[in-house]
Structures are given as C-alpha cells and as structure tokens.
C-alpha cells in the first residue's frame, strides 16, 4: 500500500516538474516576446478557466472508473442557452441559475443510466454528447453574440478585472502594469479548492476512491455504489456547467461548433495529471497541472507565431503518450513487487 502511494506521488511530481520545465523553456526561448511576464501565466489561467472546472468534474468521474465525454457538447449548449436567453431579455443571474440546474439534471440522468441501469459510461455520455450538440443546433443554428446592449450585467462580469497584488511590471512607457485575472479564473480556482477538499476529506470524496478501487469491495463495505456513481456524474455535469459559464465569459457567444474536442482536452489533462482511467487513483491538483501543461504548450506555439496550428494537438498527444507509458511502467513494477 505504501509503495502504491509513492509511485503516484512520483507521477504527480513528474507532472509538476514537466510544467516547470516547459514554462522555463518558454521563458528562455520567448523572453523577449513577453513570456516572462506574470501576466502570460495569468492569461493561460484566463483562457483555460472553463477547462479547469470541467477537468475537476472529469477527475471525479474518472475516479469511479467511468468517463464523461459529453462535457464539450454540454458547454456548447450552455453557451448557446446563455446567449439566446439573454438576447431574449432574461437577466444574467436567472440564466446562470437555469444553466446550473440543467447541468445537475442532465448529470443526474446520465448518472442514473450508468449507476442504476449499468450501461457503459462511454455509450451513455456519447449519447449525451450527441444530444447536447444537437440541442445546441435546435436552440439556434447561427452564432449568437452577447454584447453590452443585450446584457450589461453579463458584459460587466466578462470584462471585470481582478487585480493580482503582486508580480506587476513597468512597461516601456514607464507605466505600472498591474497583472489581472478575469472573474472566471476566481470561480475556477474556487472550484478547484472545493473539489480538492471534497475528494480528500469528505465521506463522498473518499467513497469515490473506494468505488473506483473496487466496486465490489465498496458494496461489501456497505457503500451505495449506484448512488455514488450517479452523484459523480451529477457533480461532473454540474461543474461542467460552471465551466460553461466561465467559457461563455471568455467567448461571449454561443455557436454550434463551440468547444469541440474539449472533452478530450479534459481527459488528457486528467491523465497527464496522474488520474487512471481504471479508477481509484488521481487527484485534482494533478489534473490542474495537466491543464496548465496543455495551456503552456498552446501559449508557446501562439507566441512563436510561425508554427502550424496543429502543433499543440500533436505535442499534447505526444505528452499523453509519454505519460501513459510511464504509468504503465509503474503499474508493471507494482505488479511485479506484489
């Protein structure tokens, strides 16, 4: 048991080290283009605020040994609902509450199918993905933007700056540039901390690990495996809806093709962060660094400006490859030491 704990810590350490190395590499290569500024790091957080929330939920589902590939489509549906709802004259707060409610109900339905009817998570969430993506088109097939005229409150949220009290720099005109984040980042960090505490210290969080480790043993221990699985999917879709709001605060628009492939980003972030798809192993801190690694790669490619747009995908996939090979080597060592 001790051994198992150790190898997982090593994996988390490798993830964090890799992020540091990548970021330092970016700083050395593109220092002249402003990569060393603290703001560049915050920009990575701003762009990926939604993804952080989604990955937290995905980690919870993956801990139970499941998977939820409906998240990208659910975000598209959330954004479209927000955009269309607001342009129809509904307020920002009611729309946000509706989105959160839809997320919870949608998750409960998926969770019911997975937990109680024992249908494969992949199939259930694939149907969920089709459903949300199609529903987005049913709501509206055009791109709908949220402008200041449509909803001043939401617009103000999106453009609010939360000033970070440290890490500023003086620009070449002699003006102090205070680093800032958007409200989405604050939400994402809160979600991250709450999820971390929940997974580590609450009864529900520990039962997720138990179910993922061995559903049979968990059931024998007296845990309600079906209910726990259902709750995990509810949590995932709920956090995904929060992520959808963060995402919408960034894009300020709803369109059918939004957030395509986001589910795979979330899964690869979680896997790079050390979460096993077999369940029972992983934590959100690792997943958070997984997201940061993904973000750093895209940021480096963007700063370079000359590389083809397909490089981030290829690099992330290469990293994923390296990580799962390392994981499988660890698993083999563990197997042998038994």
């Amino acid at each position: 048991m001790k051994k198992k704990f150790n190898s997982n810590t090593v994996l988390l350490f490798i993830t964090i080290a890799l992020f540091v190395v990548l970021y330092a590499g970016g700083c050395i290569a593109y220092g002249s283009k402003g990569f060393t500024h603290f703001q560049t790091f915050l920009n990575i957080l701003i762009t990926n605020a939604g993804l952080i929330c989604v990955t937290c939920g995905m980690t919870a589902v993956m801990l139970t040994g499941g998977i939820d590939i409906s998240v990208g489509a659910l975000i598209a549906m959330d954004c479209m609902l927000l955009a269309v709802g607001m342009s129809k004259g509904f307020g920002a707060v009611p729309m946000v509450l509706v989105i959160l409610l839809i997320g919870a109900v949608f998750g409960a339905f998926q969770g019911f199918l997975v937990g109680y009817l024992e249908i494969q998570p992949f199939i259930v969430s694939m149907a969920g993905m089709f459903f949300c993506r199609g529903m987005t088109a049913v709501i509206c097939t055009d791109q709908v933007s949220i402008t200041q005229e449509i909803n001043p409150t939401f617009y103000a949220w999106a453009n609010a700056k939360v000033i970070v009290p440290f890490g500023g720099y003086i620009n070449n005109k002699g003006k102090y540039m205070a680093p800032y984040v958007r409200p989405g980042v604050v939400i994402a960090i809160l979600v991250l901390i709450i999820t971390f505490i929940m997974l580590r210290y609450t009864k529900f969080g520990r039962s997720l690990y138990a179910v993922g480790g061995s559903a049979q043993s968990a059931a024998m221990m007296g845990l309600n495996v079906k209910l726990i699985k259902m709750k995990a999917y509810m949590l995932s879709s709920f956090l995904c809806s929060i992520g959808g709001i963060c995402y919408c605060l960034n894009t300020m628009a709803g369109s059918v093709s939004q957030a395509t492939g986001l589910e795979m980003d979330a899964i690869s972030s979680a896997v790079i962060g050390g979460t096993l798809l077999t369940g029972g192993v992983g934590n959100v801190i690792g997943s958070f660094f997984g997201v940061l690694i993904n973000g750093t790669i895209s940021s480096i490619v963007k700063t370079n400006g000359k590389l083809a747009s397909s490089w981030p995908n290829i690099l992330t996939a290469a990293l994923l490859f390296v990580f799962i090979v390392i994981q499988s080597i660890f698993a083999a060592i563990r197997e042998r030491s038994k």
Binding site: A127, G128, M129, F130, F131, R133, G134, M135, T136, A137, V138, T141, V256
Partner: peptide, 10 residues
C-alpha cells in the same frame, strides 16, 4: 438539419 440530427440519434 445536419446539426440537429444528433439529438434523435442520441
């Protein structure tokens, strides 16, 4: 429409 078809498939 092409984009709406997935709902029914789901």
């Amino acid at each position: 429409s092409t984009n709406q078809a997935p709902v029914f498939k789901a």
